[in-house]
Amino acid sequence: MRARTLSTTVAGAAALALALTACGGGGGGDQADDGTITIGVKYDQPGLGLEEGSGQPAGFDVDVATYIAGELGYEPDQIEWTEAASANRETFLQQGTVDMVVATYSITDERKQLVDFAGPYYVAQQDILVQAENEDVAAAEDLEGRTLCSASGSRSAETITETMGIGAELRETQNYSECLQLLTDGQVDAVTTDNTILAGYAAQQAGEFKLLGLEMQEERYGVGLPKGSTERCEEVNAAIAQMYEDGSAEEFLNANFGEAEFEYSTEQPEADGCA
């Protein structure tokens, strides 16, 4: 009898949990109607999107997102920020958890099948970060026989070891903060990923690291939108053009990467056009 009571309770709780998640999923899509916009950004990427307590992120992506939202008619206090990790960006857009993703989200053909992209709003280049006093590594080829750090799941390391065929040993970590720690301690010789991400870390500890300024692989950062939002996509593209025209883009870049001696590009990347 007791066992039955327990199982009923469990079943009830499970049903309740299901109902709650169902509500959460369904209610997210029409958040724009109540006068707010939900934007997914990174919370762990210095210089791009980093949470600095109280759920308020800061960084280049956040500045861009705020500007775009402004052009779409949302005041900064009408923006609800949500953390978007690399792995859940598509899911967030498909399920309507967020209205927009601005999270170092590279435009690729695979992703285009799942979501729509506006932009790109910035074209990052894959680059290499080394210790400031390192004179031995000046190009990707110098990494032959050295140790390279990259975050698990990033394609950047493959560009060097497979596409370019350079025999560097790979140390994988969970995130780039760990790579930077390993680089500081000299366990790895170099860290590779998008120059924006590297510059974000380098700016945190100015003078410790240097970017090599290479252009190995383009990463075209787009604004992720749910599939089928062509109209919204056009609006976002207009906002991005406006952002570059009135100099806001340069201002954002300088504010977030100025410390890193990072030669960012201030020209608007050519828009892809909306499908």
């Binding site: 695979e110 992703r111 394609r155």
Partner: peptide
């Protein structure tokens, strides 16, 4: 497993 998710394949 996580790599397979990240690559979206």
């Amino acid at each position: 497993m996580k790599l397979m998710f990240d690559q979206g394949v």
